[in-house]
């Protein structure tokens, strides 16, 4: 089982977290088009390389965070970032 680097809890079993998906900004609901919105809803790039992902540390700190993972090699690139992409700070 993969270890996922939570910015607060350190590396944790992936079963302790939830992979939310690729991090993608939410289109403006007032101005979006069906094509753009459904791409946001359903489409993932899923590259055989690095991608930005949002994880939820379900059994640890309860925080959402963004990190980068190499989807072919299952490696993470540190450091993980806070929910808005900022570097993590320990509260």
């Amino acid at each position: 089982m993969l270890l996922v680097p939570c910015p607060n809890c350190g590396p944790r079993n992936s079963a302790d977290l939830t992979l939310v998906g690729e991090s993608e900004p939410r289109p403006d609901p007032a101005a979006t088009t069906p094509v753009e919105w459904r791409s946001y809803l359903y489409e993932e790039d899923n590259p055989a390389g690095w991608t930005r992902e949002t994880w939820y540390c379900r059994l640890g700190c309860g925080r959402f965070f963004v990190t980068e993972r190499h989807r072919a090699e299952n490696r993470f690139r540190n450091p993980p970032l806070g929910p808005s992409g900022e570097p993590p700070g320990r509260t």
């Binding site: 809890c9 079963a15 302790d16 540390c57 059994l59 640890g60 700190c61 309860g62």
Partner: peptide
């Protein structure tokens, strides 16, 4: 202090 799974319970 930490959060953890104990017997698969949060």
């Amino acid at each position: 202090v930490c959060g953890a799974s104990v017997a698969r319970l949060a």
